[in-house]
Simulated assay, not measured.
Amino acid sequence: MSHSQHWQHHIDAWQQAGSSQAQYCREHELDQSQFSYWKRKLIKTCEPQSVKSSRFAVAQVAVMSEPASSLSISFPCGIVLSGIDANNAPVAATLLEYLR
Rank of each mutant, 00 (worst) to 15 (best):
L71W: 02
T45V: 11
G83V: 04
N88C: 06
Q16L: 09
D12G: 14
S54C: 03
R40Q: 10
M64H: 08
P48H: 04
P48R: 12
K41W: 00
E27R: 15
Q60A: 11
P76W: 05
R55F: 03
N88G: 11
S36D: 06
H28Y: 13
A59D: 01
A86M: 12
Q8A: 15
A22H: 10
Q15E: 09
S4N: 07
Q32Y: 07
V63F: 05
I84E: 12
Q32M: 09
D31K: 14
F75Q: 13
W38E: 02
V51P: 04
V91T: 08
S70E: 11
L81G: 03
C25A: 10
S19F: 00
S65G: 12
L95K: 10
P48M: 14
Q16S: 11
Q60L: 10
V91L: 13
Q16W: 00
D12T: 15
A62V: 09
H3I: 06
W38F: 07
G83N: 10
V61G: 08
T45Q: 15
D12S: 15
A86C: 08
A13I: 07
P90R: 02
G78A: 14
I79M: 14
V80T: 14
Q23F: 02
P67S: 04
A57N: 03
I79T: 15
M1T: 15
V51Y: 07
K52N: 10
S69E: 07
M64C: 06
S82C: 01
D31F: 06
V51K: 14
W38T: 01
S69I: 03
H10S: 13
L96V: 12
E27C: 12
S72N: 10
W14N: 09
S54L: 05
Q34S: 14
Q21C: 04
S70H: 06
R40V: 04
Q8C: 04
D31Y: 02
H6G: 00
Q60W: 06
V63C: 01
A92E: 09
R55L: 03
E47C: 14
K41G: 00
I43T: 10
Q34N: 14
Q32D: 11
C46R: 12
P67C: 00
K44D: 13
P76M: 12
M64P: 01
L99V: 02
L96H: 10
E97P: 00
R100K: 08
V61S: 09
T94I: 13
I79N: 07
P67A: 02
K39Y: 04
A68K: 04
S54P: 01
R100H: 09
S72W: 01
S69K: 10
V80Q: 11
T94Y: 11
V63P: 01
A68F: 05
Y98A: 11
S54Q: 06
